[in-house]
């Protein structure tokens, strides 16, 4: 069930990238998609247990897998920095193309 929701998020983001005309909205859709991917990693981490993986003698419980969580942190940071870069690019483009419709931007800038 949760897995289905995660994939639905990824797909929503992907279709947003295709369907939205505005470049800004496309970037937001990409963010939705990356949120989906990140939650998929969290989901995989919690398959074997839900407890925070801090070793403690008193408790003997099923811990969540720390590896996917550690790995996805890197991906979050990278995704965030790429997002920032793209928004700066879009800001620059918006000076000459205030509507930011990608058809127009593409037509103006393809030889």
């Amino acid at each position: 069930m949760l897995e289905a929701c995660v994939f639905a998020t990824i797909m929503c983001g992907f279709f947003g990238i295709i369907a939205k005309k505005n470049l800004f909205m496309k970037i937001i859709s990409m963010d939705v998609m990356s949120t989906g991917v990140i939650s998929y990693y969290v989901l995989i981490a919690s398959l074997n247990g839900l407890f925070t993986p801090i070793i403690d003698d008193t408790k003997d419980v099923a811990y969540a897998d720390p590896v996917p969580q550690a790995v996805i942190l890197t991906a979050i940071v990278i995704g965030f920095s790429i997002q920032a870069l793209m928004l700066v690019g879009v800001m620059k483009l918006s000076q000459n193309n205030p509507t930011l419709e990608h058809h127009k931007v593409e037509k103006n800038n393809t030889p």
């Binding site: 470049l23 793209m86 690019g89 879009v90 620059k92 483009l93 000459n96 931007v105 593409e106 103006n108 800038n109």
Partner: peptide, 8 residues
């Protein structure tokens, strides 16, 4: 502008 679009 063109280089920014291509890069983007």
């Amino acid at each position: 502008e063109r280089s920014i679009w291509v890069g983007l």
